[in-house]
Design a binder for these strands. Structure first.
Lengths: 234, 234
DNA sequence: ACTATAGGTGTACGCTGTACACTTGTCAAG
DNA sequence: CTTGACAAGTGTACAGCGTACACCTATAGT
């Protein structure tokens, strides 16, 4: 006889709280995500949550690790480039599903999924033959690009290919002296017709970077090969 | 006789409020930055601010535009690559000075400095010979990288070359089962000795990207040249 | 001198995270 | 069956947030 009459409300648990938190943040955004709102969603009084999570900060830590857990790890049986490409795309997709996590992926106390992910990515690069320091470089460029792209994608609000032009024009209409910015005008007029697609855009830059890394792996002399070194110090 | 006795406190103005706001956010971070704290800094009651800024959101908009105004525009008399390189480095530096602005640069209502900046960058690329769609691509990769790098730089907290290793190790000590992550161990052990430098790291990835763009500008066939097209439809 | 206006004040409301004391529901041992 | 412990949920309360609204006060123009 574990449950008698009020069985309708099964008890909470850290996992249930975490899952509900991710779902609520997905729906309402980070701004509207509060302990009180989460409690209401779970049919419980706000303070009940604190029996299962230490505080909001640790709750966010756990939520971010859930996002990490949804990212595909680099496959063992793929060449490094394909493996990195897939995990980059998978990361962007996860951040599209959970856009509240953009900007928090590397800022919070790392959970197990985070560690597994980073260890696997670094392992993939090292085993592909990247020397240590170059693997660091390669990791750094890729992640900067992935996280930065996710940020821009969220901010520009180009959801679908169709809406990209609309969004650009809507944004442009809030500007008064548009005629002073001819190149912004070009964007708002040409982008709608260009069939802009965020997914393709992401892949374009990703491939540019992977191409560059591939070249360096085969002839390791650093970027800017064949150019004047040390132009200005930095 | 404009001022008589209580002249010690000169009147506020939107500009003065904005400047103080940026300074306060620089010092205390965005978390601790509140209208009340800003008012106190200016020796004034909180509601006094609302005579000069509409609300906190618009205040943040203005603050971000100040950051934009500190970014060097692409110089007219430089080749596109040098111009882009300088403005990228300048952007990172501005974001280092005002790390509270990271993640807000493209998410807020754009101010005049923002528009000037974007117009100038796009203009630089177009006048360098990038066709419209390729200029969009080029802009997208660069900005994603710049903003993403700034994000990571803030999050990992590698301030100086010396402290990079320390930070990595400090972070590692908060993990219990480190032996499960051999490649993370490698990072924490080797990074301190490698003379890691965030400024050099940024330049490495930046040059990789600029190299790639340069190649495409001279032989425009898109990234992933010489590879199987359309592997999976992303 | 009178009055309109801009700038600064004080109070108050609803929201936030969460500390602390309390009650309730469930199970184990006597 | 009772008792007592412990886990889970509740209720109240507090400090801090952004800001609406009414008020005062000093200056400027007529």
């Amino acid at each position: 006889m574990t449950k008698k009459k009020l069985a309708s409300r099964k008890p909470l648990s850290s996992a249930r709280v975490l899952k509900a938190a991710v779902a609520l943040a997905d729906e309402t955004g980070l701004e509207a995500f509060s302990m009180r709102a989460l409690a209401q969603e779970l049919g419980v009084v706000p303070m009940a949550l604190y029996k299962h999570v230490a505080n909001k900060e640790q709750l966010l830590d756990g939520m971010v690790d859930i996002v990490f857990s949804e990212i595909e790890l680099p496959g063992e049986n793929l060449d490094w480039r394909s493996a990195m490409r897939r995990r980059a795309i998978s990361t962007r997709e996860a951040l599209k599903r959970h856009s509240w996590a953009i900007g928090m992926m590397e800022s919070r106390h790392p959970g197990p999924a985070n560690l597994k992910n980073h260890n696997a990515v670094m392992g993939c690069l090292r085993e592909a033959g990247f020397p240590f320091e170059m693997a660091i470089h390669a990791y750094s460029v890729q992640d900067a690009y992935i996280y930065g792209f996710a940020l821009q994608e969220r901010d520009t609000g180009f959801e679908t290919p169709d809406s990209a032009g609309e969004a650009a024009q809507r944004r442009a209409q809030t500007i008064d002296a548009l005629e002073d910015y001819p190149h912004l005008v070009e964007i708002t007029t040409k982008l709608p017709k260009s069939g802009y697609d965020n997914t393709a855009e992401f892949a374009w830059g990703l491939d540019l970077i992977l191409d560059g890394l591939d070249r360096l792996l085969q002839a390791p002399r650093g970027p800017r090969a064949g150019r004047a070194r040390r132009g200005s110090a930095l």
